[in-house]
Nucleic acid binder design. Sequence first.
DNA 1: GCTGTCGTAACAATTAACGTTGCGACTGCC
DNA 2: GGCAGTCGCAACGTTAATTGTTACGACAGC
Lengths: 144, 144
Amino acid sequence: MSANSRLTIAAHALAWIGLYQRQGHEVATSEQIATSANTNPVVIRRLLGELRRAGLVESRRGVGAGWSLARELESMTLLDVYEAVEPGPLFAMHRTTPDQGCVVGHGIQPAMQSIYERIEETVRHELARVTLASVLRDVLAAPR
Amino acid sequence: MSANSRLTIAAHALAWIGLYQRQGHEVATSEQIATSANTNPVVIRRLLGELRRAGLVESRRGVGAGWSLARELESMTLLDVYEAVEPGPLFAMHRTTPDQGCVVGHGIQPAMQSIYERIEETVRHELARVTLASVLRDVLAAPR
DNA sequence: GCTGTCGTAACAATTAACGTTGCGACTGCC
DNA sequence: GGCAGTCGCAACGTTAATTGTTACGACAGC
């Protein structure tokens, strides 16, 4: 599965902003975060834009502009981030509609759909148990 | 997440073969399955080849060739199929290594890695609870 | 006005999955 | 022994999504 790294990068950005603010800074720029994540500032701005729409971060414009947290990291979970940045489901159906004249082709999609929904629900449950504050704790606890 | 449909198609193929055998046929051809799944026979052969390596199906060659189940559908779970056809993890890390000189860039990957491993474990647990026999039951129970 | 940053559009680059074609290998049947 | 049907597999084209890049206007503080 060509998994995407949107959730990883978004968590990275949030942890970075959170740590930076703890160190007394008001706002973080997309360029600073991009340097840490080794990617392009526009990629960060795009992701943070989605997080802003979800009410997780705020942005200022003008000179001295940048990003800040809209809520405490303690009150943010990976589920919040996941829902903000992940568009589609974990597992996909057929790209083309299967043969509806075939019994299997007709019944397979509803069958798999309900299974997939149950699995995604447990994934969401697990994501909801992890706060961004605990992610940052784990980040800082990594051996160097 | 650009989810792929490999698990869905593989389950489709197994259910199709299982039902076909129940109706008294010995083997199913990749072309029959491809027609039901509305795709190309080579795609089916590729997927079934992976399932064969995992010991879930067998194939014959020559005239009257085709595919048959190597085990009962009751003894096959979606986890068996998932592990046979899904190469990578559900969530990806950064595409490029983050800045190891940054505290967050250095600690983010191990932190996310352990979270992702825990989540994949619960997904595997859920997949293991679903047999292909129950998938086929659900397929046949779909309203027409 | 100048500067630094966001906001966003447009497009290129990369990657993975999927689809297609072609052909050799195998096996049962005539 | 030849024929026909199907798998096995490689090669390549197509498609779609993500990611990366460039460009430029908007905004706000100095």
